[in-house]
Amino acid sequence: MQIPVVRNILEANDRIAEELRKRFAVQHILVLNLISSPGSGKTSTLERTLTDLKDEFKMAVIEGDLTTDNDARRVAATGAQAVQINTDGACHLDSGMVLDALASINTDGLDILFVENVGNLVCPAEFTVGEDHKVALLSVAEGDDKPEKYPLLFAEAAVMLLNKVDLLPYVDFDLDKATRHARALNKDIAVFPMSCRTKEGLPAWYDWLRAAVAAKKAKMRPVTD
């Protein structure tokens, strides 16, 4: 016999993500899910951000990695709290893993929780982990056709960081084309060309973070006047 089902396959993941979202809302914590191909510069961007905004915000990082804890150690060297999740071969983080990792993070007074996903443009885009925003990172070394090839991520991300612009003279990468393609399905995506090496472009990303933290805190303030 035929049994009609019509159930979202990711419903279990989405349910835990929703619980996380409620918890982060109560605690006023901005949660960002960083997604890119391997080696685009997620950890480098975090190292810069955690160092440069150290005096402004209390920040922590959950690092997803297939097997090593290299990234967690790099990030911890900035002084921020860092927790490693080894996904044991899974190519993405899921909300259950983030829930587990939270047990070892002190979230008191935390302003921003960064989640560095496993390097992969496909699966992480489908598994929400309770984040406020996805941040897609793309390096100019990997081709300006990525937004066209992986539309779901770029359609859902609030921000696209175009990293390694110091390499622009050596590669064929059309910033306009990448931006235009990302905007095709996502009119509001904020695009920041930047370089972790030269630090150019980072201030605009930091301003976006400041505004996002402020928005998160404002959202939760009881409406009294």
Partner: peptide, 15 residues
Amino acid sequence: LGHEVLEGKELYIEN
């Protein structure tokens, strides 16, 4: 630019 995606993101068991 900027079209809203009405369908095309779903992933579900039909039956």
